[in-house]
Design a protein around this nucleic acid. Structure first.
Lengths: 133, 133
DNA sequence: CAGTATCCTGATAGATACTG
DNA sequence: CAGTATCTATCAGGATACTG
């Protein structure tokens, strides 16, 4: 495996033992991957994201967006209109996550496939969409 | 009326909206990435992992290992000797994470570099190395 | 429309002690 | 050596209401 040049990686007052830990800490979480995933498709307004990400809480979406912005992964553009309009888009840094995300997606699909073999997925149950209550 | 634009991904009773969410859920967490990272280097005994991952709690390591095993990412080999010896290694599925992890690592390094430019990292503080205790 | 401020709760991490 | 069992502490996530 690749040797880590320096043993510790610091960001925002936290210390990480390897770059992966840092990466994961920055874009993991209950919703961040999904947000980034949606933004890979192009910039989106707050409300669009809210609608696209079914089940996410209003406050939580705002929080996660602020986190991602603080990490420099997304950029926030405010249009001082009335009513207000705010757009979010990936920064170049955020775009840099694309290959990693692509691989994660492929891995997720592979994982799904593996498990479908032994234990078929219950896709017959549309109520699952409501699971996050 | 819930639109179901993307299929669901289910595992272990939880539903995910996209494969990435699933992937992250499976190998994110405070320590899982680090564990996997260490195992990419080859199989390790419990005690080795404990030593390699400075700061991890005894119980937590055991838990995370069990989670990863349940997900099929790592395999556990028990040698019924005295004292007991247990080895952990990545399964083929776990190995499949390597490209994703490689990209995450690169991204983490890039991130680190970006932030070093504007806001120099406080590497002057050796106590940081001891932070996890 | 987008964003805060409270309050609450469940999942996770950690400290510690005990077991084969 | 490796693994449980408790107990506690913490914190991210969520429900809800209010604001420009």
């Amino acid at each position: 495996m690749i040797e880590t040049p320096s043993p510790f990686y610091e960001f925002n007052g936290k210390t990480y033992q390897c770059p992966i830990e840092l990466s994961i800490a920055l874009f993991a979480g209950r919703w961040k991957p999904t947000i980034i995933y949606k933004l890979l498709d192009g910039k989106k307004r707050y409300g669009e994201l809210k609608k696209l990400i079914e089940g996410i809480n209003h406050k939580v979406l705002a929080e996660q967006l602020r986190d991602l912005e603080a990490s420099g992964i997304i950029a926030r553009h405010v249009f001082p209109t009335n009513p207000p309009k705010v757009e979010y888009e990936l920064t170049p840094l955020g775009e840099g996550l694309r290959p990693a995300i692509d691989h994660l997606q492929q891995w997720g699909l592979q994982f799904q496939a593996e498990h479908s073999k032994t234990k078929p997925v219950a896709n017959h149950c549309p109520e699952l969409a409501q699971e996050q209550k």
